[in-house]
Write a protein that binds this DNA or RNA. Structure first.
Lengths: 176, 176
DNA sequence: CTATGGCTTTGAGCGCGCGCGAACGCAAAC
DNA sequence: GTTTGCGTTCGCGCGCGCTCAAAGCCATAG
């Protein structure tokens, strides 16, 4: 299932800590290597979500999808592109409600570009803060791992290079 | 409330993109500047969670808290330290179930250190992956902001330095 | 030619993780 | 004496998606 979904592919492309160039970003929206009209299963596999979630997004008004003569959904390039965008925003934590608002702005035409831009700027700040929070939590976790005597990874200072208390239970000591 | 909660303080200490030293991390667990036995409101304010959540954690078995003669909770240093750890893990996405397991290991004694270490290592990997995902989403968002003509911030390439399509609606074009 | 399995459709309802709200009582403090 | 802060319990709510049921069409298999 989704063994080569977009995010996985992107992470592999980027590597564990490689640079993030506009080139790489652009590649994330490059859909040249996928069939043009797609079935729900193909899109689900591409985005690493379930067909159920795709129907859910459609019911939520985030995207309109054509049908073939059997009533089956047919996703064209525009729909797929939009869904790529939507799933990326979802993955980065934007709530459904905001996505619905954003899409309503898109459907309302070019006049809404400034407001869309505002939403994106605000969301960018949210992502940035979240990354800072996680970075801090990561450092704390690695510090704790070090006090437990474990390795924190290949490219990190060895545990014995970290001075300070080595009481690993310092912050989870029983309180009873 | 919680205008000087731990995470906010930590983020200010670290700055928007400063280095993360063990020094800083250690400061995060430095509780010397807070009163020793704390009330539920004080702890809630410190951790930027609600008293409700603190009672919830206690009921969940994550921490035991003493009472004064009125039945009010009294958080000693050990309890606060543990709660600092717990909220940090929660913030970085560890589910309650895992925290309950972890705490049960702590309470079970030193023999469980290896398993605790395993949990921390696994959680570290989860945080790392999440940071990579968010970094990618951040880059995509900034790319989109650039195509909309907005600034991505002071320390990022100007929009006109990014070549490629400037069709901002490329991935949220209406599909109808 | 039927059959069997696999994919799709719709709709309604369920479930999870994580707390929050409301209602009510008690003790202290202004 | 009324406001404030804490206690408990029960139940609710939210965001997000999944499950389940009933049914239709396709393909391959016998």
């Amino acid at each position: 299932m989704a063994t080569d979904d977009l995010m996985t592919r992107a992470l592999e492309t980027v590597g564990d800590d490689g640079p993030l160039s506009a080139e790489v970003i652009h590649r994330l929206t490059d859909l040249a290597d996928v069939p043009e009209p797609m079935t729900i299963a193909e899109v689900a596999d591409l985005l690493d979500i379930t067909p159920h979630t795709l129907r859910y997004y459609e019911r939520a008004g985030l995207v309109e999808v054509a049908r073939d003569r059997y009533g089956h959904r047919v996703y064209d390039a525009d729909a797929v592109r939009r869904l790529v965008f939507l799933t990326r925003m979802r993955l980065s934590g934007m709530p459904m409600r905001d996505l619905q608002h954003y899409i309503s702005l898109v459907d309302a035409g070019q006049d809404t570009v400034p407001e869309r831009l505002d939403m994106l700027l605000e969301h960018r700040d949210i992502i940035r803060r979240r990354i800072r929070e996680l970075t801090l939590s990561l450092a704390a976790t690695e510090y704790k791992i070090a006090t437990y005597g474990g390795s924190t990874g290949p490219d990190v200072a060895a545990p014995d290079q970290i001075q300070g208390p080595v009481d690993a239970d310092a912050d989870d000591r029983a309180a009873r």
